[in-house]
Amino acid sequence: MGLRRHVIGASALVLGASVALVGVASTSQASTETPGSAFGLAADGPVAIKPVPAVVSPGGQLARRSLIEQPENAIIVAKALSVAADSQHSQASAADVRTLKDEISAGAISARCEGGQGVSRIANARVAGRPIESKPAPNTTVPVTLEKVGTASVTFNKQVRGADGRLAVTGMAITVPTPGGKTQTIDVAKAMCGTADNGDTSSIDGGVDHGDIGSIDGDTRSTDGVVDDGDDISTAVRDDKVTKEAPAPVPAEVNLPVAG
């Protein structure tokens, strides 16, 4: 009981400090009706975990939720899951995260989304024994070779901007291939905020690729009719058995200065 009080107290300290910070930052942002949202942990694939705890700011009001420990599952341990969101800001954090047989661990992970801008912080994280920087650049990806499984990828500070301008910031996103052909994903500390007004899909600043610009949860552009059944694609290509025609492109409103 004492432990719970301390964890909740610490989480409130984090959220209180963050909300105070974003409150100051929000004065220069355009107002918006789109609520922020956040969750602490979610997984999809052979092991599915619905987002917990999850929060959506009701009517722009500040909302918070906390969870001492995630529901028992086969792939990940995480504690002190806390989320908060209001009209323009959202934040998620987790502590004592361990997954994939402890090949990936972190003392704490947080993601914060403010007015369409994102930041993540990582404390005491290790991937296959290698230490991870506490302030990783957006979309910092580290491969992990898992025996009998294949190569998983771990992305820290994953930042994905949707076609509507909303930004999704995930402290740690893991993708694991599985023998059945499905992909197992694990997202820890995900925060979403912003609107088309304060998001910017029209330019890529400073030559930095923000990764998955154009989609929040996978591509929003249709690729119907192409093969993705987990079979060995190299065989189909080698035997010239790829018959589905690739889709025509849909121009994106992105500014890339080209050579001219």
Partner: peptide
């Protein structure tokens, strides 16, 4: 450990371990 880690996050402090 948990409290220290969360405080580090709250204050934006962190140790570069890269």
């Amino acid at each position: 450990s948990v409290v220290v880690a969360l405080i580090l996050l709250a204050t934006g402090l962190g140790v570069t371990l890269a």
